[in-house]
Amino acid sequence: MSSPISRRHFLKTSVFAAGTAIVGTGAANAAITSDEEKESLVTLIDISRCIGCEECVYACRDANAHKFADPKKPFPKMYPDRVPVEDWSDRRDVTDRLTPYNWLYIQYASATTKEGENISLTIPRRCMHCQNPPCVKLCPWGAAKQEKNGLSRIDSQICLGGSKCKKACPWDIPQRQTGTGLYLDLLPAFAGNGVMYKCDRCYQKIDKGEQPACIEACPEDVQTIGKRSDIIKMAKDLAKEMDGYIYGLDENGGTNTIYVSPVPFDQLVYDTGKGKPHMHPVKDTMAAGSNLAIAMVIAPIAGAAAAVGKYYRQMKEEA
């Protein structure tokens, strides 16, 4: 049987856990208020501390409610018929998965510790804020953007809702709401299908030097935000301290969200599927493009060399 109490005990007895919260707050404030810093902002999520109270989920909604879609019905008919209508506007209160109105949700997981004890864990899930985010880089319109502090977000004024970002995302994070956005002013029947929504790192709060709403609201100090180098060190120290495991540091070439768990991530049993991201290892999806960029530098040089070679051959023949 799962025992959340013993899981909490596991952590609360850890001297390190108490230390993290204090160090964490300091690191966060330092990084968030510092404009000179060139390092990206990273969050550490210590899942062993989370009690699944969903304070963060509701704080996220409150802080970002002004960004949510308010689509007018009926939606324009879209062609061909296979184009899916994705409407969450009547189900805005859903909290057990990611939706256009729920950018953070609590995933329930169970696992067995090294000591053979069954525990349950609750894991805050949202966009990982990849270091080289395919959702941003592959967006054909530039609707998704990444800021210098590493956060990625989708501009709801520009997004056409084609959902490419979701297909490109290794965790299928962005969620679509039909019947809103720019496509309505273009060719709503034939192109576009709404707007994609996801965690935007509370950029409006970060711009003011404040903490993201979910971090501020958490009674257990599950999340810590700060400079990449500080947070990586903290995550590694924490993992060492609890004899735990790290997720997100190398996934998809590195993300700005680092989970630390007392049990290996591949041993977590959790519900996954639509709007419920997995925690599998993820290879760097942008690596092929980055490697091919080198070929693009070499190819013109090779082409030019071939032309020069041909010229000298001909000059020799004609001499």
Partner: peptide, 20 residues
């Protein structure tokens, strides 16, 4: 990306070849 490399290689070749 791969075809862009081919295209740029070809362009460099054709432009220089034309010049020569």
């Amino acid at each position: 990306y791969a075809l862009a490399a081919v295209l740029m290689g070809l362009c460099a070749y054709v432009v220089l070849d034309y010049y020569f």
